[in-house]
């Protein structure tokens, strides 16, 4: 018996040794696979265009309202915005009837974990608004229509119905989950997609009326930009 035990131990130790060499090989191979699968090529339909050149300052019945000095967010918020996005654009448009619509575009060149689109739910709630999700809706566009997300934000007397959607790597998405899936689809093929958030809002207590106004604004905007720009703004 006493001689069988050490033999057994020696056998199991050498088996452990073989196993551990295989383990090391597995780990090294996994590390290499992990770095090979890492996406490296940035793709983005916006290319080198700047946001301010993409959307005209006046179109149809709408023009940029220059009487309203844009209110800058406080420094903390501004820092957060600059960390998240490569470029942002905020404009207020006004039509001949004096109705105002705020357009906000936020563009991130790389949609990976460090930089990704933040949904307006978070932005508004983070600045003290009470945000209610109205739900998904359809928006008519010259190319057939897109799905959008609708919110109702309120802070004191300020009531602001919001329509928004996102474009990740040229794909139209309306939820973070869809965006993550689109990012993963690109990522596994070696591409880093870009991301664009399009947010349209107006100050009004009547959300139905506001959403109709926003619909009209988006439709006018898309009808007055080249179809290539329209595709960039709405995705496919």
């Amino acid at each position: 018996m006493s001689s069988a035990v050490p033999a057994l131990r020696a056998a199991s130790t050498s088996r452990s040794l073989v196993q551990s060499v295989l383990l090391l090989v597995l780990c090294a191979a996994t590390a290499i696979l992990g770095s090979l699968l890492r996406p490296k090529v940035e793709i983005g339909p916006l290319g080198g265009d700047r946001l301010q050149d993409v959307v005209p300052v006046s179109f149809g019945d709408w023009k940029v309202d220059s009487t309203i000095a844009p209110v800058l967010p406080d420094p903390g918020v501004l820092r957060a915005i600059n960390a998240i996005y490569s470029e942002t654009l905020a404009r207020t448009y006004v039509n001949s009837k004096g109705q105002r619509v705020m357009l906000s575009l936020a563009y991130g060149r790389r949609q990976d974990d460090s930089m990704r689109l933040h949904q307006p739910e978070g932005c508004y709630a983070g600045q003290g608004f009470a945000v209610r999700r109205i739900g998904e809706g359809r928006l008519d566009t010259p190319t057939g229509g897109i799905s959008v997300m609708r919110l109702f934000a309120a802070q004191g007397p300020r009531q602001e119905p919001i329509t928004y959607w996102m474009v990740v790597g040229g794909h139209h998405v309306i939820s973070q989950w869809q965006g993550k899936l689109a990012q993963l689809r690109f990522g596994l093929r070696g591409f880093i997609p870009d991301g664009l958030l399009v947010r349209v809002s107006s100050i009004s207590g009547d959300s139905d009326e506001a959403f109709a106004l926003q619909q009209r604004f988006v439709k006018d905007m898309l009808e007055n930009v080249p179809s290539s720009v329209g595709r960039v703004l709405t995705g496919s």
Partner: peptide, 23 residues
């Protein structure tokens, strides 16, 4: 005492070293 004679000490901790290196 025998197992120590039968297998050097390095054989006992070598598997852990390799696994640790992998991790």
């Amino acid at each position: 005492n025998l197992p120590i004679l039968a297998m050097p000490r390095w054989q006992a901790w070598m598997p852990w070293l390799l696994a640790g290196l992998g991790l």
